[in-house]
């Protein structure tokens, strides 16, 4: 995985986020990780709105997105991202506790790159994250031009 790729984690559960981060590190993914606690924050970052940190132009991003989140949920975040000319290039991996087939189908329709269910079994969880690490290692992640259409 290219070193300059920044991993964005949108996850309302701090515990989950910690576990993902820890295990990615264990799997050898040492890329920078930015954690967002809700959908609104991640969108603000990506669309350079709001008062917090913005994404940087010319940097490649990858989004690990949870679905159940306050304010704006993962599904809406995915929809909004995929409607944007520039952000549509960014790989989005859904990582959620729901294995509801309807949800999975909807995510794929909206254009998610991958869908990962969080298992309760920690070993399995670790395994899933390891595989995610492998996936991230081979994934082609285009850099975003940094020019937001509304900019």
């Amino acid at each position: 995985m290219e070193k300059d790729i920044t991993i964005l984690i949108a996850e309302d559960d701090q515990g989950h986020a910690t576990l993902i981060e820890k295990n990615l590190k264990r799997a050898g993914i040492l890329n920078p990780i930015i954690h967002f606690e809700n959908g609104e924050d991640v969108l603000n970052f990506l669309f350079k709105t709001g008062e917090t940190e913005y994404r940087k132009s010319g940097v490649s991003y990858l989004l690990l997105l949870d679905i159940r989140m306050p304010r704006i949920d993962g599904m809406d975040v995915l929809r909004i991202i995929k409607q944007d000319k520039e952000l549509v290039k960014m790989p989005v991996i859904i990582i959620t506790t729901t294995d509801e087939p309807k949800e999975i189908e909807l995510c794929h329709k909206l254009g998610c790159n991958s869908y990962i269910t969080k298992p309760i079994d920690y070993d399995k969880f670790v395994e899933v994250i390891k595989q995610l690490g492998l996936y991230l290692k081979i994934i082609q992640c285009p850099s975003l031009n940094g020019v937001y259409s509304n900019d």
């Binding site: 559960d13 515990g15 989950h16 506790t97 969880f125």
Partner: peptide, 21 residues
């Protein structure tokens, strides 16, 4: 059921995960 599969699962993931940690 949805809650059971998602909302209840979330804390379980943590419990399992951090126990293992």
């Amino acid at each position: 059921i949805f809650v059971a599969s998602h909302d209840l699962r979330s804390p379980l993931v943590n419990i399992q995960g951090f126990s293992k940690e």
